[in-house]
Computed example of a mutant assay.
Amino acid sequence: MTELKLATEKMHALKKNGIGWMTFNNPARRNAIGFAMREAILEIIEDFEADPKVRVIVMQGAGDRSFVSGSDISEFSERRATPEQREIYDALSAKVNDAYANIKKPLIAMIRGFCIGAGIGTAIHADIRIAAEGSQFGVPAAKLGLGYAFRNMKKIIDIVGPAKTKEILFTGRRYSGDEALAMGLINQLVPADKLEEVVDDLALTIASNAPLTIHATKVIVAEAAKDPDKRDIVLCDQLVENCMRSEDYKEGRTAFMEKRTPKFRGR
């Protein structure tokens, strides 16, 4: 077990059993994300991505009240009051979005409590979203007079469709876990006291599978979601070929014949 040393205490990062745990640790503000937290997120993602022992990343909020309740608005008077400040703040936010978008490893969002505004913006970067019963979801941009960026709106559209995205943004209302599950915003809704167990089991299952196959799947799904003329089919084919030529494929076949659990090495 390894814990990263970060410049802020409002983010925690722990590596254990092949899983990288990233925790938004600002419970006094329901884990609202501030400037220093965004800087730490970049550092955590870079470390987890570079560590071959980390096969799955899980992000969660500290405590039982909130995943992420939005951006830390208390910082706005100091961080976003002028056009120059907004430019700096928005540039950092864009870097964080890019970092999430470029994660090659499976990313799971473990959601408990409030998942509002920037919480939705964070959760939609995950490949899989598991929420506890009683969680709440929403994007209150229209209640604050905020514009919601194309990039994040496109991701919501890809997940729940155009009509539901309009409803979420037009109303700014909060949705229950059952409603989020029904619209496809989350993959599973589980009892609150079972959330960590379910997510841990899921992460360990993924971590035990062949990394090259997992990576190929993530890339090909992303390419399939693009417009046909922008898809990199050559890349997709190469990733599949890499799997078929890998030592892991040989190990998988051998383990199957020997009726034992395979030990994949990602090569």
Rank of each mutant, 00 (worst) to 15 (best):
A36M: 10
M37E: 14
R38F: 08
R38C: 07
E39I: 07
A40H: 00
I41M: 14
I41F: 09
L42H: 04
E43G: 03
E43V: 05
E43L: 05
I45W: 01
D47N: 10
D47S: 09
D51M: 03
D51C: 05
D51K: 07
P52Q: 02
K53D: 14
V54A: 08
R55S: 09
G61I: 02
A62I: 05
A62Y: 06
G63N: 02
D64E: 15
V68C: 14
V68I: 14
S71N: 12
I73L: 11
S74V: 12
S74E: 15
F76Y: 14
E78R: 05
R79W: 07
R79A: 10
R80I: 07
A81R: 11
Q85L: 11
E87W: 02
I88G: 05
Y89D: 15
D90E: 12
D90L: 08
D90C: 03
L92K: 06
L92V: 12
S93P: 02
A94E: 10
K95A: 08
D98F: 00
Y100Q: 03
A101T: 08
A101G: 07
N102I: 09
I103W: 00
K104V: 10
K105D: 08
P106W: 03
P106E: 09
L107W: 01
I108G: 04
I111L: 10
I111G: 06
R112S: 13
R112T: 13
G117Q: 12
G117Y: 04
A118G: 14
G119L: 01
G121Y: 00
A123D: 09
A126T: 07
I128R: 08
I128S: 01
I128C: 06
I130Q: 02
A131R: 01
A131N: 09
A131C: 12
E133S: 11
F137W: 10
G138V: 03
G138M: 06
V139H: 08
V139D: 02
P140H: 05
A141F: 07
A142E: 13
K143H: 14
K143D: 15
L144C: 15
G145A: 13
G147P: 05
G147E: 14
Y148C: 14
Y148R: 10
A149G: 08
A149K: 10
F150Q: 14
R151K: 13
R151A: 14
M153K: 15
K155M: 11
I156H: 02
I156F: 02
I157C: 09
D158Q: 13
D158P: 00
V160K: 10
G161F: 07
P162I: 04
K164M: 13
K166P: 00
E167P: 00
I168H: 00
F170M: 05
F170Q: 13
F170S: 12
T171E: 09
G172M: 12
Y175D: 03
S176Q: 06
